[in-house]
């Protein structure tokens, strides 16, 4: 074999390997989604949406867990989003080149990938220990703490995409900075900021670790924010590891619901950004 042929051969093998790698990546996505659909669809029923979690050995649904997940996620987003947006605004509008802003940016990026179970421990020490009991509020705060870095990061990125000429034009018309930001910059970056919020909803709706020892779980219907509250991820965790066949089926049903929700949110966020970039 000549050197030329050897090089060509090596090239072909390497490129084929990279193609195989891409297939492997796709394979896992399909394998996981496939299993979820196969096991999850058989668990879907009318009762799943109308009844609360059952004791072992009897039929039931996930109504209380869905309600709990929804309530805690909504409150978590409502608390975390404004904080994230305002902090991101500071970094993008006032913190282009100052040391404090760089530090905050750096810490935020680390918090973004930090293990969420640490947030759970933090909120446990912060709220559960002083209050003396687990509560839905503690779960909400834990979720809010996960929302903040996500929203902060996307807000800053999106505000940075807004061309400075827009800011200058508004300032040239005599608008003070706060009006430039709130009337012009926010409006220009709106779809991007919404994307960040959607992604953070997707992120918190599957979070389990921070809820394990903040919101805990609740076998029964409860709308009391000061008491433990059922939520889908923890129910899935408990039920999947239980020896009861009914519980495991419910866990698969819940897993399918969560994954579909998250994929829909992710795809919606993607469509939103691609549409806005086309418009620009």
């Amino acid at each position: 074999m000549t050197l030329y042929e050897r090089r060509k051969m090596k090239n072909r093998i390497a490129l084929a390997a990279s193609g195989v790698a891409a297939l492997i990546g796709l394979f896992w996505l399909l394998a996981i989604l496939g299993t979820l659909v196969v096991n999850g669809v058989s668990a879907l029923s009318f009762e799943l949406f109308t009844e609360s979690t059952p004791p072992p050995g009897s039929a039931g649904g996930l109504l209380n867990a869905m309600f709990g997940s929804l309530v805690m996620s909504v409150f978590g987003i409502v608390i975390g989003t404004p904080v994230g947006i305002l902090a991101g605004t500071y970094l993008a509008e006032y913190g282009k080149s100052n040391a404090l802003a760089s530090l905050i940016r750096f810490i935020n990026d680390v918090l973004l990938s930090a293990p969420s179970i640490i947030i759970g421990l933090f909120v446990y020490e912060l709220m559960v220990v002083p209050m003396g009991h687990f509560s839905a509020w503690a779960g909400t705060v834990a979720l809010a703490l996960i929302v903040i870095p996500v929203v902060l990061r996307t807000t800053e990125d999106m505000l940075n995409l807004v061309p400075d000429s827009l800011r200058e034009a508004a300032a040239g018309l005599g608008a003070p900075k706060w009006q430039v930001v709130s009337h012009v910059v926010y409006r220009a970056a709106r779809s991007g900021i919404v994307t960040g919020i959607l992604l953070s909803i997707a992120r918190v709706s599957g979070e389990t670790a921070p809820l394990l020892f903040t919101a805990l779980n609740n076998q029964f219907w409860s709308a009391n924010m000061n008491a433990p509250m059922a939520n889908l991820p923890v129910v899935i965790f408990t039920y999947a590891l239980s020896p009861y066949e009914d519980w495991r089926r419910l866990a698969w049903g819940g897993a399918l619901l969560i994954t579909v929700t998250i994929l829909v949110l992710n795809i919606a966020a993607r469509l939103l950004t691609s549409r806005s970039s086309v418009r620009q």
Binding site: L29, A31, G206, T208, I236, L241, I262
Partner: peptide, 24 residues
């Protein structure tokens, strides 16, 4: 499409990987 599919892997919550890992 391939880039999106790989990124969707990141969107799947870890509890789903757990239940899939345990049973499949």
């Amino acid at each position: 499409p391939i880039g999106t599919a790989i990124e969707l892997l990141a969107g799947i919550p870890s509890i789903i990987y757990g239940i899939w890992g345990l049973f499949v």
